Structure formats: structure tokens, C-alpha cells
Amino acid sequence: MSRGKPPGTAGPGPGELLGPAQRLDWLRLIRTENVGPRTFRTLINQFGGAAAALDALPTLARRGGRLVPPRTPTREEAEAEMAALARIGARLVAMGEADYPSALAQLDDAPPLICVRGRGEVLRRPMVGIVGARNASAAGRTFAARLARDLAAAGWVVVSGLARGIDAAAHEASLDGGTVGVFAGGLARPYPPENLKLIEAVADMGAVVSEMPVAWEPRARDFPRRNRLVSGMSLGVVVVEAAERSGSLITARLAAEQGREVFAVPGSPLDPRAGGTNRLIKQGATLVTAAADVIEVLTPMAGQAGPEAIEADGPPIEPAAPGEDARARIVGLLGPVPTFIDDLVRLSGCTAAEVQIVLLELDLAGRLDRPGTGRVALK
């Protein structure tokens, strides 16, 4: 539960972690320039809450080498986004709240806030992703539909990306049992346009989710981010049809990196749409010919406890800034080649807290790249 609630602020509602003022602060912080999910978590941990972190942003960015503070939405802009969500029947759900998917919360880059439209109940149940080719074959769509229908009948929520082909077949077949669609853009910008009727049905009978601002137009680079949420919400991902170097293989790779189970449906060697799935099987993915193959593997994982929620507002913390010598040693160890943070601590002779502060400063200045868990590099 939240602590340190400002006087006169209404408290959280049932199942909520944040009060209204805290929710606005979280939204402003995650929408701040150069603040992603990992940076958000570090800021909360370092400063004890979003309000204190917002106050510290200009100083941190300046120490990282940026002359102009990162752009932070005003309270009025954050309130306008929440009002826009409300107008389309959507809401913000914070990590740790009842409707935040427990599997997603386990990721180190899990979004602290997600925009949700639909039934929160489906987001609390165990999920399995089904993805595949947009130009799917008739056989591929038929199998995806059968798989999704059988999984939904067994109590699983089917997650996919609302795209043409396999995604659409999986969503349509699992509407009655529960399905979740993940947007690459904002919830007010459904995509693709020809799936609008399906998207409305998913929102009505299941839920649609996005981490992006409500009016965000999806760009090509937003779809891999979307794919990480599809796999992150799921205990496992089934790839039905995928050509070599397809977006579905990106989802499979992300699933493996996230510790999720990867399943693949075999296909004819003569069909290029089966090239990616057949290669996944060669690399160790579980071969799937029926929903029972998926259920057998994932059932023992369902119901596992998720991590502790991010503390909404902890005690005030004033992290000490490293001295110039310490900062110079840490920055001097960085370069374009990714380096493990543990190695920075060991080689610099600085404390882990000092290293984290310097990395935070560089991150907010737009000078840091985080190519993978526990690794950083200079841009």
C-alpha cells in the first residue's frame, strides 16, 4: 500500500496502489523524455517516490552533461491524458495493482503504468501468447483458431498483437473464453484499420492494453516494444507460422530472453511461412500439434506468485551524489561496447549506489544505452 500520502489527497480505491496525486506523478515521470521503465524503477528506488524524482530530474540531467532539462509533462498535460483515456472507457493500471498482469510485472523493463480498456478480470488470469504471419495460410489460420479456442476452453487467456492473419484468428476464436490485445500505439489509435470491428470485440469481451500515450501513432520501431509485452504477459508463446526474419521470431526471441516457454507449430518445408517455425523447433522450441502440448508444459507455472509491487511512495531519500573523481572513474570505464554494471562497481572502486547515480545521470542526459539486462554502454 502507499505511504506518505499528501494531506488532503484522496486515498487509493479498492485494489489500487496509488492515490490520484501519486498516479499523476507516476504518469508524468514515465512520460518524461529519456525515462523508460528501467530508469523509472531506478528513480523510484533512489528517491523514494515519483514526486521527489521529478524534482531531482533537472539536477541529475545536468550532471550527466545535458544543459537543458528533459521534457516533463505538466500536471495539466497528465490530467488531459487521463481524461482522454476516460473518454474512450480506458484507465491507467499501475504495477502491483490487481489488474496488472503478474507475469508482466516480473520483467525488469515492465512498464510501471499500462493503459487498459476492457475487463480487468482477464488480466488476472494466466495467459499464453499466439503469434504468427500476417499473410497466413488458410491452414495456419485454421490451426491458430483451433488452438486458441481449446486454450480458452481450458481457462487460459490468449494474448496477441491484433494484427492480420494468425493474430486475428487467435483473437476471434478466444473471444468467449478471454483474450487480450496489445497495441503498438495508443489506445485511441487502433491498428490496423481493417481490424477495428475485432478490436472493439476484444475490448468488449476481453481487454486491450498499451504502454504508450493514448494518442500515440504507432511507428515501425514501436512494434518490437509491443511484442515484448505480448511475450511478457504470457507464460509461453506459440508461433504458428513465421517466415525467416519475421516479427513473430522477434517475439519468440524476446520470450526466450524473458524466461518464457517457446512453442512452434511445424510446417511444410515447401512453405516459406514455415521456415521460421521449423528453425525454432530445431533450436529447441517445443513442438505443438494440439493445445494439450501447451497446457501440459504451462500448467505447473500458472499461479506462481509475482514479485513485490513497486512502493508507491516510500520514505524520503536523499542519495549522495558521487564526487567528481568517482564520477570520472565510472564514466571513463564506459564506451560503445556494453559493460556489465557489476564490472563498473568492481573496476571503479565505487559503491553500487554511486554507480547507479552516475548511470542515472547519463541516462537522463540521453547518453546511455541499455542493450540488455545488467549491461550499459555510452551512445
Rank of each mutant, 00 (worst) to 15 (best):
I295Q: 13
V116L: 15
V297D: 00
R63I: 00
R327C: 08
R226T: 02
R28M: 12
E81S: 06
A21N: 09
G206N: 12
F340Q: 14
G129K: 10
V262K: 07
K197M: 08
E217Q: 14
F47N: 00
V209E: 09
L344I: 04
G48S: 13
A353V: 10
G366L: 13
A152G: 14
A274G: 09
E296Y: 02
P336K: 09
L359E: 01
E121K: 02
V337F: 01
L359V: 00
A138W: 12
V288T: 08
G276P: 02
F263D: 07
A243G: 15
G247R: 11
L235E: 05
L24E: 15
W216K: 14
V93K: 03
G36L: 12
A274R: 07
A154R: 11
F47G: 00
V237P: 02
G372C: 08
V182R: 04
S160D: 08
A169L: 08
L43K: 06
A255P: 10
A152R: 04
E77L: 01
T39M: 08
G8L: 13
S248P: 07
E261K: 12
V122Y: 06
N227K: 11
L364F: 13
V376Y: 05
A169H: 05
G118H: 11
H171T: 03
D108M: 11
E361V: 05
V376I: 05
A110F: 09
P315E: 13
G161P: 06
R87S: 15
S160F: 08
V122S: 04
I281M: 13
G65T: 09
I295V: 14
